[in-house]
Design a protein around this nucleic acid. Structure first.
Length: 241
DNA sequence: ACAGATAGGGTGCTCACGGC
DNA sequence: GCCGTGAGCACCCTATCTGT
C-alpha cells in the first residue's frame, strides 16, 4: 500500500465525519432549493417546510419549466405569481374565518377575542409577506380593513343574519385539506377540489391582483389539467365574501 | 401524557478504484 | 486477480416537535 493510501486510511471516526459532511451537503442543497423554488419559498415564509416537500415542489417546478408550452420570457412574472398565490390563499382563509366567526359563532366584531384572533392572523400575514419572492411584482399590503369593522365594503353582507350562506347553517366545507393535518397536504400543492375564486369584478383587494394574471400555463404548472378545475375563468360558486 | 412524524447521528454493507 | 480503501447508501436508534 502506498504512503498516500495509508494517509487516507479510514477510521470509524473519519467515516463519521465524512457522513456528517455528506448529510450537511444534502441539507445545504435542500435549503438552497427551498430558497430557489418559488412555491417552496412562498410556503416557507409562513412555516416549516419538510425536506420531502421541497423535493416534491422542485420536481413539480422543473417539470413545469420544461413543459413544451411554458411561456418563454415570462418566467419571472410567473415566479412572482407563484409566491403571491400562497399569500392569496392565506388571505382567503382569513376571510373564511371572519365569516365563520361572525355567522356561525355569532361573534361580535367588537369582541376582544375576535379582535385578538384577527390581529394575530394579520401579524402572521405581514411576517410571511416580507421575504416573499417578488423581484418584479412587489406584494401589495393586504387590505384587512374589513376585519375589524363590519359594514365596510368587503364586509357587507356578512351579518349573522346571513348565515344561510352555509347549507344547513354549517360552516363552509369540507375544506380540502385533510382533517387534523398538522401540516399542509402533500402535493398537489393546491387543493384537489374546486375552489371558488372571485370573478374580476368581485376582486376589490389589490392583494388579489397578481392572481388575476394566472393563466392556463400556471394552472398546468401546479398540476391541474384545466383552468376550470379552479373555476377561475367561469366561477360556478358565489363568492364567500 | 402519549403517539406519530421528522430529522440527525452512527454504523454496517456494497461497490468502484488504485496499488501490488 | 487480490486486497485495501473511500464513498455512498440503507438501516437503526434517539431526540425533538406537534397534535390529540
Amino acid at each position: 500500500m502506498s504512503d498516500r493510501l495509508k494517509e487516507r486510511k479510514r477510521t470509524p471516526v473519519s467515516h463519521k465525519v465524512i457522513e456528517k459532511r455528506r448529510r450537511d451537503r444534502i441539507n445545504r442543497c435542500l435549503i438552497e432549493l427551498g430558497k430557489t423554488v418559488p412555491m417552496a419559498l412562498a410556503k416557507q415564509s409562513s412555516g416549516k417546510l419538510e425536506k420531502a416537500e421541497i423535493l416534491e415542489m422542485t420536481v413539480q417546478y422543473l417539470r413545469a419549466l420544461h413543459s413544451a408550452d411554458f411561456p418563454r420570457g415570462r418566467e419571472k412574472e410567473l415566479l412572482a405569481e407563484f409566491a403571491n398565490y400562497f399569500h392569496y390563499g392565506y388571505h382567503e382563509c382569513m376571510k373564511n374565518l371572519v365569516h365563520y366567526l361572525t355567522t356561525v359563532e355569532r361573534m361580535e366584531t367588537k369582541d376582544t377575542k375576535y379582535a385578538r384572533i384577527l390581529a394575530f392572523l394579520q401579524s402572521k400575514a405581514r411576517l410571511s409577506a416580507e421575504p416573499a419572492f417578488s423581484p418584479l411584482a412587489p406584494l401589495p399590503e393586504p387590505d384587512f380593513s374589513y376585519q375589524l369593522h363590519a359594514g365596510t365594503p368587503d364586509f357587507v353582507g356578512h351579518s349573522p343574519s346571513e348565515a344561510s350562506v352555509f347549507p344547513q347553517g354549517a360552516a363552509p366545507g369540507p375544506f380540502p385539506w385533510p382533517h387534523g393535518a398538522a401540516r399542509s397536504p402533500a402535493l398537489p400543492y393546491l387543493p384537489s377540489a374546486p375552489v371558488p375564486l372571485p370573478s374580476p369584478a368581485q376582486q376589490h383587494s389589490p392583494f388579489l391582483a397578481p392572481v388575476q394574471g394566472l393563466d392556463r400555463h400556471y394552472l398546468n404548472l401546479i398540476g391541474h389539467a384545466h383552468p376550470s378545475a379552479l373555476n377561475i375563468h367561469t366561477p360556478q360558486h358565489p363568492p364567500v365574501l
